[in-house]
């Protein structure tokens, strides 16, 4: 075997992969469980975080709201101190 054959054999070996027969079913079961839990507790913290993290606009809105609330709090604090 020349170098190229050996290199290709190595690549071929790295390319081979075996997956278990129930791989797809296992993933689909996990997805179904996830969907069931989501329906059960649509408004729990975990779902809310996942929902927020999946939508860029929701994330931006949350950050903006946090910023505004923080700013108002600081302004109110200064006003109280100055009065």
């Amino acid at each position: 075997m020349n170098n190229k054959d050996i290199y290709n054999a190595w690549k071929e070996q790295k390319h081979q992969v075996e997956t278990s027969e129930d791989f797809t079913d296992e993933v689909m079961n996990q997805i179904r469980r996830y969907e069931q839990n989501k329906r059960k507790s649509l408004f729990d913290v975990q779902s809310l975080i996942e929902l927020m993290s999946a939508h860029t606009l929701a994330k931006a809105g949350l950050i903006l709201t946090g910023g505004v609330v923080g700013f108002i709090r600081v302004v109110l604090m200064f006003r109280m101190v100055l009065e």
């Binding site: 997956t19 278990s20 791989f23 296992e26 993933v27 996990q30 997805i31 996830y34 996942e50 993290s53 999946a54 939508h55 860029t56």
Partner: peptide, 18 residues
């Protein structure tokens, strides 16, 4: 590697909207 791959597909499903 198969467990990690299953996790990858679950995350992909959850984040598919993004």
């Amino acid at each position: 590697c198969q467990d990690i791959a299953q996790d990858v597909f679950l995350v992909a499903y959850k984040k598919l909207a993004s």
